[in-house]
Design a protein around this nucleic acid. Structure first.
Length: 425
RNA sequence: GGAGAGAUGGCCGAGUCCGGUUGAAGGCGCACGACUCGAAAUCGUGUAUCCUGAUUAAUACUCAGGAUCGGGGGUUCGAAUCCCCCUCUCUCCGCCA
């Protein structure tokens, strides 16, 4: 959520920034509602002040045994006026809130213009795509040949867009999670295990609602949602708290399954493990001092990229253009892995600085000392990494002509030292 | 799921039956000051958040007002105190990995 005071003071600037996202949002209704709200408040608060004073007087008089009927009658009428005004205030505040909760974050000045993938800016590269002396297969073929992922049987349980990891496949999945968590722990993140369900207000705070309601899995017993990412839960970890500046930054890493009801058509980018209804992810999340958030974003990107490097997966990191960024973000890096089987670069991670946009929604603040005024923290989130896609990238990059997959050095400790996965039969 | 008890400021804890200068006693903690070579102890002062208006370069300070005693609604001139709904916590029973 944006600061209403920013909108009030520089509406054209805000509108212009939103336009960079490809959103034409008029702030006129916001400004109107804001002005009307304040006018109503002035009127209502004057009446309340009058009533408060009179009520004290009545208390005093009653104690002294004096007659109070006339002022009580008068205040009853004042009460009616206040009630009427309260109704109007509530109405206009509802309108205003709804408008504010629907405005995305503003892109940072350092973010390139553009609305499409081609407008993203290449800002880093590591490794180079391996030269194959055979035609590299897409991961689903590699996996099928090794018998480590079963898509067909998953449909018996849950339908399309799910998978079953089998044998060495599931051990590999688990090893990836373990490696990621250990790496991040070593870099100062506190590991947390989270609820996988969250209430509506939590997804509102994280910024997943009201924007993407149709992409959320919900359950029927309670009004709750399966989390689309651990970010949705982590953004609420310190909701309504006032943190101490001494404890910042607070850095969390969490492995969770993620659930996304994305109705996208079939194709290279949605086949196999790339776009499923459920996938594993290790998420990184930071609560930081405002003046440090852009440095922290660089650090976050480094923490995510460290995993690519450990797994020896070549990547390119792009700075997303304004139109490609998520709602909550002001600046996002996507490190993208090379998928030789798909002949594509695809993101295994997305690292964003949300400034105070999310912190306002979740009401997470901090104080710079016992006498400091509370300020909103800045929040950052990044995948570190999406496990399903990482699994796929690993198979595609490290596949051998004989169909086996070489396990990168760093991962072997987690797999009893085995050097490659080979077909069982 | 059933029955009952509870939720008060950073923390502990009064007040709730019998509504009235109670944003809230007291204690702890914390901040500042005094004392001290310094510290402890002691003494003094201060110590929630949000909103609106005035002032302002300011979303800094100050002043005035409003709101908040888990959240929402109601009764009343007036609600931390009375009534209703919700959320959460605890105890007992049931169920259960």
């Amino acid at each position: 959520m944006l600061d209403i005071r920013l909108i009030r003071s520089e509406p054209e600037k805000v509108e212009q920034a939103l336009r960079r996202r490809g959103k034409e949002i008029s702030l006129k209704p916001v400004l109107d509602a804001d002005a009307r709200r304040r006018a109503l408040l002035v009127e209502m608060e004057a009446l309340k002040a009058k009533r408060n004073e009179a009520s004290k007087e009545i208390g005093r008089k009653k104690k002294a045994g004096e007659d109070t009927d006339s002022s009580m009658e008068e205040m009853r009428k004042v009460g009616e006026q206040i009630g009427a005004l309260e109704g109007k205030v509530r109405e206009v505040e509802t309108t205003l809130e709804q408008l504010l909760w629907n405005i995305p974050n503003l892109p940072d000045d350092s973010v390139p213009d553009g609305l499409k993938e081609e407008d993203n800016l290449l800002v880093g590269e590591w490794g180079s795509p391996r030269r194959f002396d055979f035609a590299p297969k897409p991961h689903w073929e590699v996996a099928a040949n090794l018998g480590i992922v079963d898509f067909e049987r998953a449909t018996k349980i849950a339908g399309a867009k799910f998978e079953v990891f089998v044998g060495a496949g599931d051990r590999l999945r688990r090893a990836l999670i373990q490696l990621m968590l250990d790496s991040h722990r070593g870099r100062g993140y506190v590991e947390v295990g989270l609820p996988l369900l969250a209430r509506r207000d939590s997804l509102m705070a994280s910024g997943h609602l009201p924007f993407f309601e149709e992409d959320q899995f919900s359950i029927r017993q309670e009004e709750m949602f399966l989390i689309p990412t651990a970010e949705a839960a982590l953004a609420n970890l310190h909701r309504d708290e006032i943190l101490s500046a001494d404890n910042l930054p607070m850095k969390y890493a969490s492995y969770t399954p993620c659930f996304r009801y994305e109705k996208v058509g079939a194709g290279k980018e949605s086949r196999g493990l790339i776009r499923q209804y459920q996938f594993d992810k290790v998420e990184l999340f930071k609560f930081v001092l405002p003046e440090t958030s852009f440095d922290e974003l660089e650090g976050l990107r480094g923490d995510a990229e460290a995993i690519y490097q450990a797994l020896e997966i070549p990547y390119r990191t792009v700075l997303l253009c304004a139109g490609e960024m998520g709602t909550a973000s002001t600046k996002t890096y996507d490190p993208m892995a090379w998928f030789p089987g798909l002949d594509k670069w695809l993101e295994l991670s997305s690292c964003s600085n949300c400034l105070d946009w999310q912190a306002r929604r979740a009401n997470v603040r901090f104080k710079r000392g016992p006498k400091g005024k509370p300020e909103f923290v800045h929040t950052l989130n990044g995948s570190g990494l999406a496990v399903g896609r990482t699994f796929a990238a690993l198979l595609e990059n490290h596949q051998q002509a004989d169909g086996s997959v070489v396990i990168p050095e760093a991962l072997r400790d987690y797999l009893d030292g085995i050097e490659k996965i080979t077909a069982v039969r």
